[in-house]
Design a protein around this nucleic acid. Structure first.
Length: 435
RNA sequence: GCCCUGGUGGUGUAGCUCGGCCUAUCAUACAGGACUGUCACUCCUGUGACUCGGGUUCAAAUCCCGGCCAGGGCGCCA
């Protein structure tokens, strides 16, 4: 593009700029050739703008280039803004020079202008083209602002952002399947969660930490709400209990809704979402109530069972929006959950749900060494495999609590998407490892 | 991993029940042509496809079996 630099994004040009010379850059969204008149709709990250090329008002060279353009060619256009009622936006650009920066081959693997729909599989195979569609891009602009808002809230509440290892030695934590990898002469695994590390940071005295990073789960699930690589928003806070963790989670979620509603009107409009800013506190259900509700909806559920998919759906019919489930049976929660001192069957764990979807789970953690050993044994795990983790509980571990919020699932809720793959640039599932 | 449904030009589809004038429909895209206000421009001409392997049959896009892949559901997901 030589010495050319973009002077404006398409949405920065206004009818009042009539007569001003500008440079815009982008992709040819569509082109309509009417003999001696050519219309080019140029698309950049922020929107679209019409370039009009009348043979009698431009040089022969500009007209010929204009006529030669194809869909998705990358161009730079230097020209004058012209206010004109006949233009779609009330203004358009008459070029003095068009530079073709790169041609696009044809036919395209899918249609970014959305005239012909494509299956999600085709779209993901050609994700970079799919992402040129304004609706798809809007979702990822929202995701960026969601992450900004989450960080802002947590920084404001005194958390520091940390990074913990994703290459881990142990496959003995129990629970989910891990991805084994080769680590020099040893076997290692991809981390399933930063849980143990963020707890160790409580022992380190960092007091309040959060991490936004990938988690890996080698489960062969095949659903619209599971991925094998996901982004987790994890936080952990010292000298706090489950109620404090719930309050923090609530304000993270609520502030994000407020932030998006205030700063992302355009993107929400593009994807057709009218955000419901649900008031806090969100409703709380105790596990006992959940069992009753689910059974009253005709779905069998025994006390002590985790929620089946049918149970989640029944709950989703009964509840609307965000709500917490608290007072869980200890047997179905992880070993690091603190038992409830008032009722030994229960523990200090909670889940945050949205309709029928679990988007976060957390708990006050077990900070007492002997209890923790009991918990590990109760889950059928071997305390000897938790060496460096357990050490942290011997020399002054403060009481603490925390949670993990699924960033991709949170985006499903925000963007009203039914498939989690829509919310991830390059999703990883049972079948998909590329692109 | 299990169950259900499906796989037709670049993309999205019709046809499959009941095998045969299918030399396979339509839209869009693409190539060429006409057109000075399009905005899903319009009009004319043209190019382009039955997932793979096996089977049944005179004959398979169509029926049967298997593979691969996809969509949906379930399970799994401390």
């Amino acid at each position: 593009m030589g010495n050319w630099r973009r002077t404006h994004f398409s949405d920065e040009i206004k009818a009042e700029m009539d007569g001003k010379e500008i440079i815009v850059t982008g992709w040819v969204n569509s082109i309509r050739k009417l003999g001696k008149l050519v219309f080019v709709i140029l698309r950049d990250r922020e929107g679209m703008i019409q370039i009009v090329i009348p043979k009698q008002k431009v040089s022969e060279e500009v007209f010929d280039i204009g006529k030669s353009l194809g869909r998705e060619d990358v161009i730079g256009v230097k020209g004058k803004v012209v206010a004109n009622e006949k233009a779609p936006a009330g203004y358009e650009i008459i070029p003095t020079e068009i530079r073709v920066l790169n041609r696009a081959e044809s036919p395209l693997p899918l249609d970014p202008s959305e005239k012909v729909p494509a299956d999600i599989d085709t779209r993901l195979d050609n994700r970079f083209l799919d992402l040129r569609r304004p609706k798809i891009q809007a979702l990822f602009k929202l995701r960026s602002e969601m992450l900004r808002s989450v960080r802002n809230t947590l920084y404001d509440e005194g958390f520091i952002e940390v990074n913990t290892p994703k290459l881990v030695a142990s496959a003995t934590e129990g629970g989910t399947e891990l991805f084994p990898i080769s680590y020099f002469e040893r076997e290692a695994f991809l981390g399933q969660s930063p849980q143990l590390y963020k707890q160790m940071l409580m022992a380190a005295g960092l007091d309040r930490v959060f991490e936004i990073g990938p988690i890996f789960r080698a489960e062969e699930h095949n659903t619209r709400r599971h991925l094998n690589e996901a982004i987790s928003i994890d936080c952990e806070m010292s000298f706090s209990d489950d109620g404090d963790a719930i309050a923090t989670l609530e304000s993270v979620v609520h502030n994000t809704l407020l932030h998006l509603n205030e700063h992302c009107k355009k993107e929400l409009d593009v994807i057709g979402v009218d955000l419901n800013i649900q008031e806090i506190p969100f409703p709380r259900l105790e596990y006992d109530e959940v069992v009753d509700i689910v059974n009253s909806k005709g779905v069998e559920m025994e006390w002590g069972e985790d929620l089946s998919r049918a149970a989640e759906k029944a709950l989703g019919e009964y509840m609307d929006g965000f709500y917490f489930i608290t007072h869980w049976p200890i047997e179905i929660r992880p070993f690091y959950t603190l038992p409830n001192e008032e009722d030994p069957r229960l523990c200090k764990a909670f889940d945050l749900m949205y309709n029928d979807l679990e988007i976060s789970s957390g708990a006050q953690r077990n900070h007492i060494y002997d209890l923790l050993i009991e918990g590990i044994k109760r889950m059928g795990l071997n305390p000897e495999n938790f060496g460096s983790y357990l050490e942290a509980f011997k020399y002054g571990m403060p009481p603490h609590a925390g949670w993990g919020l699924g960033a991709d699932r949170f985006m499903m809720v925000i963007g009203a998407q039914e498939n989690i793959r829509e919310c991830v640039l390059f999703p990883r599932d049972r079948q998909r490892l590329t692109p």
